[in-house]
Amino acid sequence: MQPVVAPRPDGGITMLFLPTDLSDLLLGLPAILDSDDRPEVRSRLYPAPSDDEEANADWERLMVPELFALIASARDVMARDLETLELTRDHPVGGRLDIPPEHSSAWISGLNAARLVLGAIHGIDADDMADDAVFLEDGERARAIVLVHLLGELQGVMIEVASRPPYEIDDTRYDADDTPDEPTE
């Protein structure tokens, strides 16, 4: 059965029929975000805001802890939603992941952060991202690039769903003639 990413009318997302390898990639997202204390990752996720060394030192001291907490918060939201997938990972029809609309922002941001973490760790650049040959390659770096693309697909769907106007119920299907008859004695 093919995996399905289904936008929900309430603005959330449901993913169905996830094979175990895809489930495992998604279940690994919190661990990817836990890598944000590596120097190459820190310099990408928490870059210096100017060329003023003194200002940058103050930024590091005052602002970076807050930025760090924001990513940790998104990570926690994702980890909670992934509990359902963990439970359904080995189901015969595949795993299921439900992302409610109120978690959408955390997922969009967390997916972006996870892609940047992978990019920083593996030194992924624009040429890597444009090279389709990577899908035929093996190795840790090639797998990381494929994962960046995969997570980008999911992030793109979530952005599209989040950008849609609120779902409206089409009540023109009902008219007075559809009103149930009064019960007869």
Binding site: Y46, P47, P49, S50, D51, L67, I71, N112
Partner: peptide, 18 residues
């Protein structure tokens, strides 16, 4: 400008002020 850079960094965009 500092506040905006903070908000952009919160979304992990690479942003600076000058």
């Amino acid at each position: 400008a500092e506040l905006y850079v903070f908000k952009l960094h919160s979304a992990q965009l690479s942003a600076t002020l000058e």
